[in-house]
């Protein structure tokens, strides 16, 4: 019986020493998607639509911001409409593309921009954290190369 208690004690301690578990949720806006999310050693593949969450990740203990790329479909759609770059997408300005658009400044390819959470979060062994990405809690991350090239 004494051995059983020791084993259970170690098991409980082991549980506390497990790497922190983190889940990230996209709570920005319906038209905004996130991808390439990372936090303190965790990296999540795939795209997070509004309201969706990552799978739980075992991250390193310590402090970090959530880093990710953001795509705003509504802004993209408006830009393409203004530029008249996509067939079938109704151009702005009374049905014609903006005549003042300069060559070299139109691009129909969606752009994902680098962002991070404004706040840093601290996680420790044995803990579980749910981080919600909101519009008020994010900022551009200029430490990573932009989609405009290196």
């Amino acid at each position: 019986m004494r051995w059983l208690g020791v084993v259970l004690g170690f098991a409980a301690a082991g549980c506390d020493l497990a790497y922190p578990e983190v889940v990230v949720t996209n709570q920005t806006a319906e038209t905004i998607q996130l991808r390439q999310l990372s936090f303190n050693g965790c990296y999540w593949e795939g795209v997070l639509a509004f309201g969706e969450s990552t799978s739980p990740g075992r991250c390193l203990p310590g402090e970090d911001r959530v880093h990710f790329q953001k795509f705003d479909a509504a802004a993209y759609c408006q830009e393409q409409a203004e530029d008249g770059t996509i067939d079938g997408l109704c151009p702005c300005n009374g049905g014609t593309a903006d005549p003042e658009i300069l060559e070299g400044l139109t691009n129909a390819e969606p752009m994902w921009f680098n962002y991070q959470t404004v706040a840093s979060e601290v996680v420790d062994y044995g803990e579980f954290h749910l981080f919600e990405i909101t519009l008020t809690g994010l900022e551009q991350d200029f430490s990573a190369p932009s989609p405009y090239g290196h």
Binding site: E82, E100, I101, L102
Partner: peptide, 23 residues
């Protein structure tokens, strides 16, 4: 913003969208 088009100033920004100013 460009007064005639309502877009951002030509040198300003619109780099990405092309509707206005610079990058």
């Amino acid at each position: 913003p460009d007064e005639s088009s309502g877009a951002a100033g030509a040198g300003g920004a619109g780099g990405a969208s092309g509707d206005s100013g610079g990058a």
